[in-house]
Amino acid sequence: MPPAVPSPILRRRRLGTDLRRLREAAGLTGDQVIERIGWASASKLSRLENGRSRPDPEDVAVLLDLYRAAPALREELLVITEEAGDMRAWRKSYPVMTQQQLGWAELEAGCAQIREYNPVLVPGLLQTEGYARLRIVSANAAAASADPSAGDDPETEVKARLGRQSLLDRPDGPRYTAVLEEAALGRRACPPDVLRDQLAHLCELAMLPNVTLHLLLRDTRIGEFYLPPTAFSLYRFTDSQDPETLAIEGGFIDVMSTEASTVNRYKVAFEWLCSAALSASDTLTWLFTATGRLTDTAASSSTVPGPTAAPAQRRRQPGRLTER
């Protein structure tokens, strides 16, 4: 079961944000800080403020003294520093985690809310073992074609992904919402038996109190013909001081951002997607129907048949969103 505490990566980001804020409030540039405390490289401060290095408590204490941090804030940030540097509990909680999967698990475990959209795949937190194995094996094969040494052991990856999913069953787990594309639930994604099990699993998940699924039908118009550029996830954390995080999936490269303006653009996009998609109840009906048809007969078309008539939908007119 994933730990119900913020992860080290979140603590590092929180610490970095607060240290940068304190430095700016003190009217100091990065170069001035380096000169005053005698560090050899400006990159050390940059990595610390951007949450990219494990913080040393002594270094943080020196910075807090320089910035004249209030006693209560100083104590709080030193506690966060200790949490940011302790990876032992996390390694024990995820004994089979690969480095990539651990990064996703760290983001997910400290969340109060997760929102995901994927135009071509079922998100990892919703995948069955069979679907996950197929996705991982095919991705590793593509990576190995360019670099034979690339990719982790598939079974380790599968166990890691399934281990992350227990997050949704936790009593204090996050509120999870996903927008699924109809195309992602078609025959192109996997063999019929794997797809049938995946659809049945989605039906079960959709009935959990903290899980909401929306289906975006193939020909649905999103606002003024908005087209989502790629798969993305939005994370809001239990600690309100931790910045909301955007993760953009780009095939073999994932990009993360806590820049408020960027995160907000994708939050608006997610609202548009939810407004255009089927409601949660209509999505569940579609999933049950599609699962039943796959179970009873082999569908002859290249996509899974849903209900013959999609329920009427209300759509909100969006504001302006810059596509990237």
Rank of each mutant, 00 (worst) to 15 (best):
V263E: 07
P174R: 01
M97R: 00
N118E: 14
P55Q: 07
A69S: 11
M207V: 08
L205D: 07
R175T: 12
E75R: 12
E49F: 08
D282W: 05
M87Q: 08
A290L: 00
R218L: 14
P243F: 09
T258W: 11
E182H: 11
L208Y: 10
V33Y: 00
L162G: 04
G16Y: 00
E58D: 15
W286L: 06
P119W: 02
T177V: 14
T156G: 10
C203R: 07
G250W: 12
A269G: 03
A40C: 06
R52K: 15
R21S: 09
L73M: 10
T212C: 10
M87H: 03
A184R: 02
Y266L: 03
P154M: 08
L215E: 01
T238E: 09
S46V: 13
T98F: 01
N264W: 05
L48Y: 04
I136H: 01
G110T: 08
T303R: 15
Q99M: 07
Y94I: 02
Q127V: 10
I253C: 10
R188W: 14
R14M: 14
R218Y: 15
S301Y: 00
R293K: 11
D56M: 09
E129G: 10
P95K: 11
Y226Q: 08
R164D: 08
A309M: 13
S93N: 07
G319R: 07
R320M: 11
P191N: 12
A160Q: 04
F270D: 09
G163L: 05
A69E: 01
L234C: 09
R11C: 14
P2I: 00
I222P: 03
A189E: 05
G51I: 13
P55V: 07
R21E: 10
R324W: 11
L64E: 02
Y266C: 04
L48I: 09
A109K: 00
C190Q: 13
L102G: 11
D147E: 12
T295H: 09
P3W: 00
I114C: 11
Y67V: 09
P8Q: 08
P174Q: 09
A184Q: 00
A260R: 15
Y94T: 07
A26F: 00
T262K: 06
P3R: 10
Y176W: 04
D147L: 02
M207N: 12
Q32C: 02
R88H: 05
M97Y: 05
S145I: 03
A178L: 06
P191F: 03
D254P: 03
R21N: 04
Y176L: 06
M97N: 06
L15Q: 07
P95N: 09
L321E: 04
L48S: 11
M207Y: 03
E244Y: 06
D239L: 14
A206C: 04
L180M: 13
R170N: 00
D193H: 07
P8A: 12
L284Y: 11
R14G: 01
A269V: 06
T322C: 02
D219C: 06
R68L: 08
